[in-house]
Design a protein around this nucleic acid. Structure first.
Lengths: 334, 334
DNA sequence: TTGAAAGCGGTACCAG
DNA sequence: CTGGTACCGCTTTCAA
């Protein structure tokens, strides 16, 4: 194809290639000539041929725990925005729907379909993780939002502990003493971090988090809804519940409402994330905001930098600030 | 690379290639021999070289109006699930964040980065649309959820009109006579379809939808929230509001609540979509369910079929059934 | 069943 | 600044 352009322009293929990829290495007139022909024929370089020759895909893979989970959409958008600026394509895959023919996500790297990988899943199977830290892949991987405890790979994350400190200080400041915690899925790093954050902040206030005041088990609406009955059956009841996610909080409020209880009159509820619907919950949800768009962006940025210079980004961890967003779901205890 | 394997196995590269791609065209023992070496060295084919030779990318591009909008996540997941089964990769791009260097999404097709395109955006710029119906691309494109009115391209969609008929019949059956409609963004095909559906169904009941009883303007939570004041300022007030999306409905309920009004006692509210949080809204939202996962799946399926046989899928339109989901946000008028 | 070899469409080195 | 050309890694005739 480039041959056709070369012939039509009366130059060599090398010149066409240069005119397209290194405009400055070609004389003004030649460039105009070539570009004219290119334009007129709607010529586009074949990305395989180019990739094969340059040994890079021009694409990056994002690995998402569950593509159907709306929580990730903004992170993905952040990633895509940044990649697009760099002229890099974004491939997405679901880390849970096990690669059809059992293909590990790392296959994309090894088959050079992608130059790098951003994982939003910190709980990858040990085998996959092992593949990721292999010498030929370790320089191409970055984590976003979650991260694996067992390997010191570069990552971008929100300041989960600080977020929970903000949450605890807020409800304790309101006068709550019995605060319950709705946690995420076992084995998840965010679950661990946030819980540790809650415990530490509570301890700093001279309070504790007895295990029976911890419920939940995943980040979902359902889990939050289901926890309401159990939490309210306790005596004495907790007067405030901090949730590991907004979904959990919204589910909880729904469950509480089904019990005839209202927020924040009967219980205060806090979320974590500040998802789009948090301001429209009833009552509007007090929560900890993490900037998912910025997180995605930063992760893409980090990966791009890592691909360019693996050594410089070795083990780099970026912790993004979080913020307390006061709305109406918390109040002083009755 | 394949050369190394060939050398190590003591066979030709052709044989290695065959053992990998057409195991049946190679003797049992040769295959075992080759596979052994492949296994031992963790060899993976280079996808560019293969793509370059076979002239196909093994990837498909999904074009999303706004990657950050959680509404699309389930559709994307459906697409990805189906593609994965077929061993095809999924690239995603945002149709609104105009391709960095102004690259049209069609560039992916022309540069053979993707074999096909699934657009979730029915309102593509005229120029893009023109590119899509060009002879060399028209056989590679399919629409999902939305579709362009000006070009008869294959598409998968929900039965929007029937959905609105269900909604209208439900509220009218409850005894409502003054029903308002919260509509989507102007120029959007779903906006048009759904509104037409509402009008037709209302007409069939001997009722009408005067323009002043139409509000909204996009599918968002914000728009729903903002509409509450205006809707409630009307005299006489509408007793039921049908919304073009669940987001709109949830925003509306929030706005209503800020006004001291409650649903469904003061007003009945219906949504459309049945998003994950609909059952957890306060009150749980009565809505029209569209199966976004199935929709994505079907779209991927259709594209795969179209790539295999463009003629057979010419202008094909798949309309997926929708369903009324009764919850608590609707009741007989006071 | 297997091997030799011709590309697939570009890129970049090396001369000129 | 431009052209000739080897080569990126794999697939697929064509012959043997």
């Amino acid at each position: 194809m480039i041959k056709d352009i070369a012939r039509l322009a009366g130059v060599s293929t090398a010149t066409v290639s240069r005119a397209l990829s290194h405009p400055d290495r070609v004389s003004e007139e030649t460039r105009a000539l070539v570009m004219g022909v290119v334009e007129r024929h709607g010529y586009r370089v074949n990305s395989f041929a180019r990739s094969l020759r340059k040994q890079r895909a021009g694409a990056v893979l994002a690995l998402v725990p569950n593509l159907g989970n709306p929580f990730f959409s903004l992170i993905i958008k952040g990633i895509q925005d940044r990649l697009q600026e760099a002229g890099v394509d974004l491939l997405v895959a679901d880390s849970h729907s096990t690669g059809g023919a059992g293909r590990s996500p790392v296959a994309h790297l090894r088959e050079s379909r992608a130059d790098g990988l951003i994982s939003l899943d910190g709980s990858l199977p040990a085998a996959t993780l092992k593949d990721l830290v292999a010498p030929d892949t370790v320089g191409k991987v970055v984590f976003a939002c979650e991260w694996p405890l067992s390997a010191p790979l570069p990552s971008v994350r929100s300041d989960n502990r600080e977020g929970m400190r903000l949450a605890v200080d807020h409800v304790v400041g309101l006068g709550h003493r019995r605060v319950a915690y709705l946690t995420g899925p076992a084995g998840n790093i965010l679950t661990d971090e946030r819980r540790a954050g809650v415990e530490a902040a509570l301890a700093a206030q001279g309070l504790s988090l007895p295990p029976e005041r911890v419920d939940g088990g995943d980040f979902s609406l359902e889990a939050g809804h289901a926890a309401a009955v159990r939490l309210m059956a306790m005596t004495p009841r907790p007067t405030a519940v901090i949730c590991a996610s907004d979904q959990l909080a919204i589910g909880l409020i729904s469950g509480l409402s089904a019990l005839g209880l209202s927020v924040p009159q009967d219980v205060s509820v806090m979320g974590f994330d500040d998802i789009a619907s948090a301001p429209y919950a009833l009552p509007p949800l007090t929560t900890i905001r993490q900037d998912r768009l910025a997180l995605g962006r930063a992760a893409a940025d980090l990966l791009l930098e890592r691909l360019a210079d693996p050594a410089a980004t070795e083990g780099r961890v970026l912790t993004l600030p979080v913020e307390l967003v006061l709305r109406r779901s918390t109040a002083a205890p009755a």
